[in-house]
């Protein structure tokens, strides 16, 4: 597979390390009433879709960027690649 890195252009997927669903960005609030349940759902449960999947890849043999790749799990077609940092900021993550 080839991942079109937003900064570095097309790179072979073997330069990257895969983590999983991009929902891992949405880490729950540790002070929430039901924090344990929320963390359980966050860490352990997956949509695991057959189709479009937003997922985290780390450019380990490259610039060490975490990327959010939108990829189809049936065809492997990649339709979007973003810097995970940008995605995290958009989703309201900060400090």
């Amino acid at each position: 597979m080839i991942i079109n890195h937003p900064l570095l252009g097309p790179r072979d997927a073997s330069e990257f390390t895969y983590l999983g669903d991009a929902s891992l960005i949405d880490r729950p609030d540790w002070q929430a009433e039901d924090a344990q349940q929320q963390f359980h759902d966050y860490l352990y449960l997956r949509d695991n879709p057959a189709g479009e999947h937003r997922e985290l890849w780390f450019h380990e043999q490259g610039d060490r960027s975490w990327l959010v790749v939108t990829r189809n799990t049936l065809t492997h077609e990649i339709t979007g690649v973003e810097l995970a940092r940008d995605v995290a900021m958009q989703r309201g993550r900060g400090r």
């Binding site: 390390t17 983590l19 891992l24 960005i25 880490r27 985290l56 780390f58 380990e60 060490r64 960027s65 975490w66 810097l83 995970a84 940092r85 995605v87 995290a88 900021m89 993550r93 900060g94 400090r95």
Partner: peptide, 23 residues
């Protein structure tokens, strides 16, 4: 060594991108 660095970059870029820190 490798997996800890990867994990810390995940924390830095994906969880707390607003922190001023570099690894």
């Amino acid at each position: 060594a490798v997996s800890v660095f990867r994990h810390m970059e995940f924390c830095r870029q994906c969880l707390w991108p607003g922190l001023d820190v570099h690894l």
